[in-house]
Design a protein around this nucleic acid. Sequence first.
RNA 1: GCCCAGGUGGUGGAAUUGGUAGACACGUUGGACUUAAAAUCCAAUGAUCAUUGCGGUCGUGCGGGUUCAAGUCCCGCCCUGGGUACCA
Length: 984
Amino acid sequence: MDYNHKIIEEKWQKFWKDNKTYKTTNESDKEKFYVLDMFPYPSGAGLHVGHPLGYIASDIYSRFKKQKGFNVLHPMGYDSFGLPAEQYAIQTGQHPALTTEENIATYRRQLDQIGFSYDWDREVRTSDPNYYKWTQWIFIELFNSYYDIEKDKAVSIDKLIIIFEKKGNEFVNACHSQEEIFTASEWSAMNEKDQREILLNYRLAYLADTMVNWCPGLGTVLANEEVKEGKSERGDFPVERKLMRQWSLRITAYADRLLKDLDPLDWTDALKEMQRHWIGRSQGASVKFKIDGNDNLIEVFTTRPDTIFGVTFMVLAPENELVDEITTADCKEKVAAYVKRSSARSERERMAEVKNISGEFTGAYALHPFSGEQIPIWIGDYVLASYGTGAVMSVPAHDSRDYAFAKHFVIPIVEVVAGGNIEEESYDAKSGKLINSDFLNGLEVKKAMKTAIYKMEEEGIGKGEINFRLRDAIFGRQRYWGEPIPVYFKDDIPYVLEKSELPLELPEIDKYLPTEAGDPPLGRATEWKYKGEYSYELSTMPGWAGSSWYFLRYMDAENNNDIFSDDATNYWGNVDLYLGGAEHATGHLLYVRFWTKFLYDIGKISITEPAKKLVNQGMIQGRSSLMYRATMHIWSKGDAYPPSEVPPLFVSNDVYKLFMESNKVERLSKDDEDRLSSYKDEIRDLEQESTTKFRSLYPNKSGEVRYGTSFTPIRVPIAIVKNDVLDINAFQNSGPENKSARFILEDGKYICGSEVEKMSKRWGNVVNPDDLCERYGADTLRLYEMFLGPLEQHKPWDTNGIEGVSKFLRKYWRLCHNADGEFEVSDGEPTSKELKSLHKTIKKVEQDIEKLSFNTSVSAFMICVNELSELKCNNRTIISDFTKLLSSYAPHIAEEVWNLLGNTESISIADFPAFDEANLTEDNFEYPVSFNGKTRFKLELPSNMSKDDVEKSVLESEESAKWLDGKTPKKVIVVPNRIVNVVV
RNA sequence: GCCCAGGUGGUGGAAUUGGUAGACACGUUGGACUUAAAAUCCAAUGAUCAUUGCGGUCGUGCGGGUUCAAGUCCCGCCCUGGGUACCA
């Protein structure tokens, strides 16, 4: 029988399913290994060829690890809450659960046909109440915890209450947003409502009035990382800032740990750098400035306390609360106008106007903490209300933004660090000696910083401080299709549900839109009340809630009594290899690290990081095909021909290029000139032809058809293009307007141009894995996706190349099948050549998989099969070992051959073939001999020959004489079994 | 602007980490088999000069440098892709 992928793949997929071949247990003597894919959001479009790339890589890796004797956990599930299903529900009225269910079924079918070794018994879906019950459970834990800075961990809120009862909050060292200080007796005197209100300022999940990113287009708030350049990441709707009472998670409490623990992780530097930047730790000091004639203080954060004597003005954010209070009467009007103007501008506009310097003087003065000098207080857009205290001390000599501001408004600039030229620009570097700075004079910047902070602390002016760019994460979404937040309100105060009351399930609603009163969609469920009495929280959790801990649930997915068992998490530990897209760098990957640390703090798990090693697979881009359409004119004195009937003219790629070239360069080569003029003739002929035709069709109209020589690239569906050659027939049948199309061809073919861009329906360049599985089979698809190039790299998809790997599999099949298509292997000892070929491959493939270099191992397979074919090898041992080697890449064909070899068990439990160096030793080595670094000839010599003998043999060889040309070599370099270089 | 990643044939990409640049494939061209096609197999394929042949020269984004030897290391640029954006 010829290699028939359809029969074979169906057969083994059924076998794996029936026999639960890939079931993983939590009890094993073997060492564990956890390979995780970032789970997909099941979109309606299904998978395109780019999605499975990472899944195939991780599948090969898992199967390989299994072969090497590990107990491998390799699960899959769905991030099934999310906006698209809800948007679809709004449009169609169809319940998102139904759409999601259908989409998941499609995904599953597509995944199954590629032959993955997932243990499907561990599947999770974030939208399944059995799963989100535990997401809610974690929320309750967060609500019931605060962050103790001294212990540097989350602690039960009950402990905090005890402290309040004993000592009040003055000495509590916790992460909080509580401003007032109270004593123990004051606490005890408070009613429950006030107490609970205060506790909210300490909880890790808290409700507070916060500036949020409000997206009217989606009708919900978004977290910072869901906003890209002022627009929503999903849907690309504008986002505005708005003050709202919202649920947030106090991720900032973990900022330091999130930063510190990054170092030892085996993640790419780029990714770690992105996280570091996102967390944005800066060290400096907070300094208090008195205001002249006002009791308030302006507190600022600065990273340059050393430049304190260079402060010549202060700038407050327009939103700063102090603005109103300190502005003098004569400045009121202008300041108010400025505040109004900047508040009206969206975040996006503000960003776009970075270069525009704007601001307004408040009329008020601050007093320099050391010199007591008056410092004017300004307000300005460039100071952000959301960072630090929303106020800065401006040191124009040593900060480029302050410099620009000072220059613009003509404010004095005082140099305090020597080394730059402040006439020209600010000197921002953190090196040089202090000048004009009283007690800091003569100190180096670093020393000056310490001294300044010391003095500030001594005099109670300020203190050393660390600031983070990271903001607390907004946790509520005014949406339906997400986890309900397990909270109800009594007297406007939030209470969490008892854990025994979970899950709090999503209620049914009539429409997936906000209520008339403007409440989120859950407000439509009017009967939905806690104990039939208290209102539930109406917003739901964001998309990343469920994905922040799913890797743990896989370890014990079927546990009904607990979120997961200690045994399971202790056994599986961290994810050993986590594979997914780089787009999750600051969203998902930061949150999953945060929740992992929190679960560690409360003693649920014993790891502090989710994944030891993380790899981002590159995106597979689409390759769009382009046609070039000539501009068309109708020249007419009177009544013209209807333009819609003039046939469009398309020119082939080469023709297009030639025309473009002729516009760019002054002179074309003779050859090109000739071709160009022949194309021009062709265009003229077509114009003539059309004109003649129109004259006869429309005898009453006058005119001429002309085609211009400027061209518009038009995308054409890749389905009607093969190897860049357009199927002209198919194109003409693709639409009425194309029916009459004219072409200027090259060699009788229309060659399309191409462009690499995102794979998308819009560009007609989507390639579906279903078609490829049907035509070539899953094994071929798997191999080809890997063959395409390095895993991490972005690369364009080009279906043409798939023939190569398809040929390879058929060649491998033929190795163990005779001319009649019958399975046939020979017994007996393999030859040394055969062994050499095999073992070379074993070594290479093993090394390659370990370093995730899958593309090169596919080449190695091809080389091996080419060699074995050459040797006409069908030796049982060789075929058997090679099959084991191949099985992680092409599991179906490997199972089949394995079975034909007489094995009854699945190949997935067979060991990885053992490598024996002895098979690779060579008697001779063919030395490349170079003269002055240029390879001139090759010389075969025994591999154990000494350096001196090699040198001698080389110099004595006939060929050398020619290159030495009678001269004596200056130097001869011999690298044993590598190279010989003669310097003349 | 800043921070990453990357520039190698017509194309995707290899290169034992300083040691034969272009493996392996695609594509193209020519050939074999066939009534024909498909499939399969064989050969050529970086550029250029020369050609009867041997062959020569150039060549890993650009310009320098280190070295017996550089795609690989160092210095200075250019370009492409990604991230980020007044973070005090």
